[in-house]
């Protein structure tokens, strides 16, 4: 089952390697990964998606919590979380620019570059929507594409906030 794990970590060099290293060392596969800072500059938030059963995901969370730079871990409920990833897609347009632009509208994808004989679209959405966009664009000839990892927040008032670290860290 596809699981979404939100991880709040200290925003320090090497922390990505520690988290990623834990996954590879213990034989877990990351499907997607996104990292960015939070409203507090000393913390970053990672979103990891992976295919795992209940027992495995529990173990993953506990192993993550063991890393001293990890401050909070939560498995997000897939049905009540807002999930997005972003795609940039460069498609061969040739004579079919108008057709492509119309198609893109269906996915609320915007053209961000129209130079030459190609079009570059940007779109956001959950995995299913972006996969559908790729399928639709495929026949025209995808020249290049790049995708971010999934980011997700739980819906409603719950929040994964960290007020302060467990340990006292040296000041920057």
């Amino acid at each position: 089952m596809e699981q979404i794990i939100a991880i709040v970590v200290r925003n320090q060099p090497g922390v990505l390697m520690r988290v990623a290293g834990m996954f590879s060392r213990r034989g877990y596969n990351i499907d997607s990964l996104a990292v960015g800072t939070t409203e507090k500059p000393e913390f970053s938030r990672m979103t990891v998606t992976m295919d795992a059963d209940e027992a495995t995901i529990q173990q993953v969370c506990k192993q993550l919590e063991k890393l001293v730079e990890v401050e909070a871990v939560k498995v997000l409920p897939p049905d009540s979380s807002s999930k997005r990833s972003m795609i940039l897609l460069k498609v061969h347009a040739g004579e079919k620019r108008i057709e492509l632009l119309r198609l893109a509208e269906v996915f609320r994808a915007h053209a961000v570059d129209v130079k030459g004989s190609s079009l570059t679209f940007v779109a956001t959405g959950d995995e299913g929507k972006l996969r559908a966009l790729i399928q639709v664009m495929e026949p025209y000839g995808i020249l290049e594409m790049v995708q971010t990892g999934l980011v997700a927040l739980e819906r409603g008032d719950t929040s994964l906030r960290v007020e302060s670290s467990r340990f006292s860290w040296p000041r920057e």
Binding site: G14, R18, V68
Partner: peptide
């Protein structure tokens, strides 16, 4: 990098001002 998987934690001290605190931690 080498000892990341075989230590509980490790530090590279890049800021002299953080040295003492890092050792205590």
């Amino acid at each position: 990098g080498i000892t990341m998987p075989c230590t509980k934690h490790n530090f590279l001290v890049k800021e002299p001002a953080q040295l003492a605190h890092t050792l205590r931690l």
